[in-house]
Amino acid sequence: MTTEYNPHILGFLCNWCCYTAADSAGVGRYQYPPNLRVIRIMCTGRLDPSFPLEGLAAGADGIFVGGCHPGECHYQDGNYHALISASLIHEMLERLRISRERFLIDWASAAEGPNFVRIITAFTAKISALGPLGQAEGKEQGELRRQLSLMVEAARGRKIRTGLINASREMMKTKDFSREAVSALVHDKCAKALSNLGAGGKYIL
């Protein structure tokens, strides 16, 4: 009999929607798995792209970013900027051949405690099924950490961040905030910087 893997999950919740939803889930006594550790931020727009990567490097098996529904951001478009950062994370995970499902960005309004619980319960089950980070991907731990650190450094670096600025600017211009459009933008603006990473793409496709 296999016991279910008990994953480490790190969450970044915006103060106005998802963090409030999490509080209201508590007030309503809606139960969910105890794997999530929450870092409160005022807005998902504050999410530095290096945060989720550092989280994975620090031992998280999954990262959750929770904000307001699109169009309902307390700061108007912070969650769209979060989508830009999220697209970069997904892009990087794919290049590292780490399951992109380990990073989730989703929304729950302040009034949606049960929705928050549903999202977290499903995400926890998903990560539990994937198993420990690296193991499911068939990666050796030391190698995995090295690659993630490289990505953190890349996400802190000027080239990638300039790519994200360009993608954000484009997104604001086109007003197309669909995940597909945003990830295409980020792919387009950051591909070159990403491909040039780490000894000519030694670690990366």
Binding site: C43, G45, R46, D48, G78, H81, A82, L164
Partner: peptide, 8 residues
């Protein structure tokens, strides 16, 4: 205090 500037 949203922090978009810091993230970008």
């Amino acid at each position: 205090g949203c922090g978009v500037c810091a993230a970008r």
